[in-house]
């Protein structure tokens, strides 16, 4: 478990590396995040820190939320996010975390909410093949068979069907940090990340299997 940073997706562009290759990058405005709460084994039963990100108007928050932020003396914040830790020693309430935590070349995971596509059909949601569009065919985007007949007499749970697609949490793993700009609080990450520009993102150092910190 390691502490990441919260940010906003700004969009994509490309940058050139030393070899002159064009690298597709996502621009993420990350931080500054303030530590709004430090949870410890004694007080809460587990160790974690809570980060706040995103300026908000005081009237946009509820009184309990404002009261909670009052404890850490931070201005009203839109998003709060908790990171489980083994040891919260290095963090204290009110501390500011900025993009300096990351270095160019570091491998990160980016967590966000994917673009919502509403009620999507079989082809878009599950990559089914479609039927012929012509030659008298009436089977264009239909699902085909959903299972056997009288036995079992029902459709098995988990059968892939049309339904809501997107709008769910997605983690894109092992993206490389291309550049860190602490002046503008901007991270450039190679590749694409979930959501549209303006979406909230959680950038954390990559969890690599067998490499527990």
């Amino acid at each position: 478990m390691s502490v990441g940073i919260l940010g906003t997706k700004l969009g994509m562009t490309q940058v050139f590396d030393e070899a002159g290759k064009a690298i597709p990058v996502t621009v993420i405005q990350a931080g500054p995040c303030s530590v709004t709460q430090v949870k410890t084994q004694q007080t809460d039963g587990y160790a974690a820190i809570q980060l706040g990100y995103g300026e908000a108007k005081a009237k946009a928050l509820s009184k309990p939320e404002l009261g909670h932020l009052q404890k850490s003396n931070t201005s009203p914040l839109r998003h709060l996010k908790e990171y489980r830790l083994d040891d919260t020693g290095e963090f204290e309430i009110g501390q500011q975390l900025i993009v300096d935590r990351f270095t160019a070349g570091q491998i990160v995971d980016v967590v966000g909410v994917s673009i919502g596509r509403g009620f999507a059909g079989y082809q878009k949601r599950h990559n089914f093949k479609r039927g012929p569009m012509a030659h008298g065919s009436k089977n264009h985007r239909a699902p085909g068979s959903t299972g056997a007949g009288t036995t079992p007499g029902r459709v098995y749970p988990g059968k892939r069907m049309a339904g809501r697609l997107g709008g769910s949490q997605v983690t894109i793993r092992k993206l490389t940090v291309v550049r860190v700009d602490s002046e503008r609080n901007v991270l450039l990450v190679k590749g694409s990340v979930p959501g549209k520009p303006g979406a909230l993102l959680n950038v954390v150092p990559a969890t690599i299997v067998g490499n527990r910190e």
Binding site: T8, L10, V15, V27, R184
Partner: peptide, 15 residues
């Protein structure tokens, strides 16, 4: 700065 301005300023360094 707006999102587009930041992206444009990153691009401008390399134009």
């Amino acid at each position: 700065m707006h999102a587009q301005d930041i992206i444009r300023s990153i691009e401008a360094e390399q134009l």
